[in-house]
Design a protein around this nucleic acid. Structure first.
Lengths: 193, 193
DNA sequence: TGCAAAGCGGAGGTGTCCTCCGTATTGTAT
DNA sequence: ATACAATACGGAGGACACCTCCGCTTTGCA
């Protein structure tokens, strides 16, 4: 189910791989049910492994978060290329950011934490980080080139702003989140001459 | 120093009032030093009172937060009226929102929590809540009337968006925060005809 | 000065984080 | 098949935070 982490000299032991999957599965379920601050002990219990095993595999809560959501993030990135192919530059960017907000609404506080992780150094997660940035940069630069948005914008600013929409507490209702996103999208546009 | 909470039938006892002040002072210092998630026991220790005393006065962390920051919020509100007097409608709104961001940067995570409190019901805090909304509504409606910003905007959306700027983790650098605010401000403007 | 009301404070129950290390499992080399 | 490292397991336990409860102290009115 999951890409067993780093291939070591010795192949990963069977029990280790099994427990890894059990943990990620349990974590995904728990995060979905109770948000990203579920007790780690609860997750270990649910997975049927000892707390020590959890901590050996995932030294921090965010390591676990990453393992759970790496593939979801990947799919958000992939969508960027679809939008790029099918829509005009500005619309593609807008659609991609909208999918960001949707994802954040669905996953509660998660999107914010992921955006936060973009700032930290996280080896296992860095591929995703690069992917998000690559995808975003592509859409952003095309939209700049088309003259639809202001050329001095920086990707990091835009991503944080959009990530912040769903990160606020209490979580905005979808219609409010979309109105907030509209404000941001208007703000990206080139000022009238 | 602090507006002793609700005047009861019997006047507040001297020791109670003293401890109230000690707690608020200690909390202000601790929040400033270690952020708003400092241990409450630490605050009680610092104030030199028992943990029970803290909990009797402030049943929740946010009750304490409110007591600490009520007056600061008030001053942010007051500034709105100064801006209204001295600047053009749009500039007044922009300046006020900028002061929001400044405040959030200075107080770290606090601004976000305060915005969050705007959603909850918090009796002791509700006066402040009303004040923020009144001040914001004044500036927003004037800016709408002047034709500088789009008339369909809602105050709550704008406040959340701006509050979200400083709420993201890790905290943005001031120049990044200002760039993010610029995006929002551009987004408020009436679209070019 | 006496005495009830108001207030105090910290022990202690619960829950979480995280570490440490004795024990069990696994895979390979013989 | 067997032995033996290397690897992994798991949970006890220390540290710390939250919050409640209740016996003891302080205050201030009569």
């Amino acid at each position: 189910m999951a890409p067993t982490p780093p291939p070591s000299m010795r192949p990963t032991r069977a029990d280790a791989a099994r427990n890894y999957d059990l943990l990620v599965t349990a974590a995904r379920a728990s995060f979905a049910e109770h948000g990203t601050d579920t007790s780690l002990e609860e997750i270990a219990r649910r997975a049927g492994v000892g707390i020590g095993t959890l901590y050996r595999r995932f030294p921090s809560r965010s390591a676990l978060l990453e393992a759970v959501y790496v593939d979801e993030i990947q799919s958000v990135c992939d969508r960027a290329y679809d939008f790029d192919r099918e829509l005009s530059p500005f619309d593609a960017l807008a659609a991609w950011l909208r999918s960001f907000v949707d994802y954040g609404l669905a996953k509660k506080t998660l999107a914010g934490e992921l955006l936060a992780a973009l700032g930290k150094d996280s080896p296992f997660f860095s591929a995703c980080k690069t992917n998000v940035q690559d995808a975003g940069e592509l859409l952003l630069s095309k939209a700049k080139a088309s003259g639809d948005i202001r050329p001095e914008l920086e990707l990091a600013d835009v991503l944080r702003l959009v990530g912040g929409i769903t990160h606020t507490t209490p979580q905005p209702k979808p219609d409010q989140a979309m109105r907030m996103l509209d404000i941001v999208l208007c703000g990206l546009r080139r000022a009238a001459p």
